[in-house]
Design a protein around this nucleic acid. Structure first.
Lengths: 162, 162
DNA sequence: AGATAGGATGTTATACTATAACATGTCGAC
DNA sequence: GTCGACATGTTATAGTATAACATCCTATCT
């Protein structure tokens, strides 16, 4: 599995796939992908970037009636609960899931230069499992977040030109 | 390296070791472990539990003059910057570092039943490194946090008695 | 069609987390 | 002893999140 987010993918397909997958999974499970929830997911999908709840709120407000925080928090709760989005704790913000449908313990690579967030998974099984087992700890959920510089921003820094 | 925090260690030694280590490292590096900073570290060390900034603020206030948020946030900034404490992003709170002195990318095991936090490290090198390298990502910092149930709380749940 | 029950959204208010900005104090180097 | 650097005190405010209650929508049963 490879990191999705920094470059080299057809992003419009990425969006439509994710939406189609979300619709299918909701239909199968009897969840309701309401217009509000769908719209928030679309906004999150529009870029591989983490958006804060209040960023989303602003975008939603610009589209019509003013919205209140609970509206977007509720949509985010639905999306994260069912694996359509993830919260990036370090940024207090949210990204669409890049691997919808598959159960996974994601690893996020957060570029501090351009704010893009790539989602990948551990190549060699989940390392936490080993650490948790050793400690006798029953793991339920995990968040792995790394900050750094993405390939594109590194290239940009090396040929700074001006 | 084993997980420190859930049980089976001499906690008073744990506290005095950490304080001594912090003092030594500050002396070596010319950092100032002021009374305020030292006190916040002591409070964090008093249990292997994550404390919020406002919890600390309350404890400090009870000890004397009322304190304002920046006081504790500044102490926390100093402690985290120099590796004496870590922030637990999922909880918006802070723990004393259980492995002071050694450079490390910690893994936190957070018990959702008793709120204790154990700090351990990956047994087999850092898995993020591999994922990051594969993505061409230059990693600077990482946070690995797992939620679940600690051994003691699991035992308690299994023999619930009454 | 009407009644009803569950869940989704609207709305107000407020709690919790964090920092900006500026004043004041402390301590060591010169 | 004064100067500069750093630490702390203080006020105000920004940013993140949720409680609580009202309303509405939709699916189902009769």
């Amino acid at each position: 599995m490879t990191a999705i987010g920094f470059s080299g993918h057809d992003h419009s397909a990425c969006i439509s796939d994710a939406l189609a997958s979300a619709e299918a999974r909701c239909r199968e499970n009897g969840w309701r992908l309401t217009p509000m929830r769908r719209r928030v997911l679309e906004l999150l999908l529009s870029e591989h970037r983490a958006l804060g709840a209040y960023d989303l709120l602003k975008l939603l407000s610009e589209e019509g009636q003013p919205r209140q925080p609970p509206v977007v928090y509720r949509a985010l709760a639905f999306l994260t609960e069912h694996g359509f989005a993830h919260k990036i704790e370090r940024l207090n913000s949210y990204v669409a899931c890049a691997h919808p449908g598959s159960a996974h313990s994601p690893i996020f690579l957060i570029c501090s230069a351009c704010d893009k967030v790539a989602e990948t998974t551990s190549p060699s099984g989940n390392p936490l499992e080993a650490a948790a087992r050793e400690a006798g700890f029953a793991m339920e959920a995990a968040a792995i977040e790394a900050s750094g510089t993405c390939p594109e921003c590194r290239a940009r820094q090396n040929e700074p030109a001006e």
